[in-house]
Design a binder for these strands. Structure first.
Lengths: 224, 224
DNA sequence: CGACGACTTGACATCGATCAAGCGAGGTGG
DNA sequence: CCACCTCGCTTGATCGATGTCAAGTCGTCG
């Protein structure tokens, strides 16, 4: 079943397979499926790269309704490492058939394009912050992005699942686990953040967004 | 005259105007032309953003033959700040006519797409490094990217113009001018770098690339 | 129970930012 | 022509932010 968030039953014909993940699983361990597009149904996934020094960098993360490797449609060489976190479910789409389907459904195509454009802007905004701002801001913008990732899939709750481990957050933000831990603790002490049961809540999202100049990029006529 | 590097006389009809820059000039000072595509003919330009704390972040830089705001073609809302450095010359292209021309010249379109794809990969590689690596590596990858920017426009010399000031390099890499200065000095002392007359030379590009895992993304059938 | 993974904490070392000052080349006005 | 200014670069001293190493806690799962 295609994610309700996507609102594109058009793609039903393109489905190659469905998977449910019980333990964290990386896609390069699963060469057969690398030819597909990955549509997250539930749970979360992230895209990552190993740097020359062995460090893992997490480039982006994908909540329900997101396609992890959309660029493959434009560039068949595009290959990326993806990890699905335990509990995730996802659908494999055939890129060729998907491209064809989208050609025939310009509306759907434009919706998906808008969604991807919004994601790209979100990433570039985050990246600027990660390059130039101090740790507390880096963490804050990560949390805002995570929240946004869920919001766009229709899950808008005051509490957001903190779906990544502190190790993974460190690899997103270019920090150390220790420092991530301390920064989160500091935010909690400063009453900017609450954590409970694997979820988090920002005390004043508004203020944080204003302070960081955080911008939301809403897909233009997105159905979701 | 369209840059010889681009090899796309097809675009001649799309030219709106040409400009030569004597002193550094930012495009948002020049509202009239914001509607256009910017094609760098010579010299260098960069795209930047001001963060909430007033810091300037330089997102990318463009050598001869590059289009600074290619994304405008896909998203008319796409607006970015661009600065042309003193000595640059550039051409303004009408986005509507350019899009039409490219529709009629799939070959040219695909070439330009490849070039942009290569740029996107270069940026994301640099961004990873800037987020996760220590200062010396951040500077090194910036220098490699700058060299590559010139190489792709056909200017392949052992010496590359160090076209940005140390202030600007700081804004690319998220460092301070002082630290940029010291890092460059250290590289020079370690015989990894030579500087003279506003240009630089890397003693062993090969070794540096290997050490950083630097990848070159070559446009597929790019004419240039 | 034992093992493991995620998280937490402390002590310490290093990196990079900040502040302050000076230098040298190019431009401008008297 | 010189005096003066500005801008980009350089250097030193000091401070704060972040990484490193090491150990310990807590919950989960077999």
């Amino acid at each position: 079943m295609i994610s309700p968030g996507l609102a594109t039953p058009d793609l039903a014909d393109c489905v190659v397979a469905q998977r449910a993940i019980t333990a964290d699983q990386s896609v390069w361990e699963d060469v057969d499926s690398r030819q597909s597009l990955y549509l997250v149904e539930s749970g979360i996934a992230f895209r990552f790269t190993y740097l020359a020094n062995g460090k893992r960098h997490i480039d982006d993360f994908y909540g329900p309704g997101s396609i992890c490797n959309w660029s493959r449609l434009k560039n068949d060489e595009y290959i990326c490492n993806i990890t699905f976190k335990a509990g995730a479910r996802f659908t494999l789409l055939d890129p060729g058939r998907t491209a064809e389907t989208l050609r025939q459904n310009p509306h759907t195509h434009s919706v998906l394009n808008q969604i991807e454009m919004a994601r790209a802007l979100r990433v570039s905004q985050r990246v600027r912050a990660l390059i130039s701002l101090p740790a507390s801001h880096r963490i804050a913008i990560f949390l805002l992005d995570l929240k946004e990732e869920y919001r766009l899939s229709g899950i808008e709750d005051e509490w957001t699942p903190l779906a990544l481990t502190q190790d993974e957050i460190a690899d997103v933000t270019g920090m150390t686990v220790v420092h991530v831990n301390r920064t989160l603790a500091k935010m909690e002490q400063a009453d900017e953040l609450e954590r409970a049961h694997g979820s988090f809540r920002l005390t004043s999202t508004k203020r944080l967004e204003a302070q960081l100049g955080y911008r939301r990029f809403v897909p233009k006529r997105g159905e979701r």
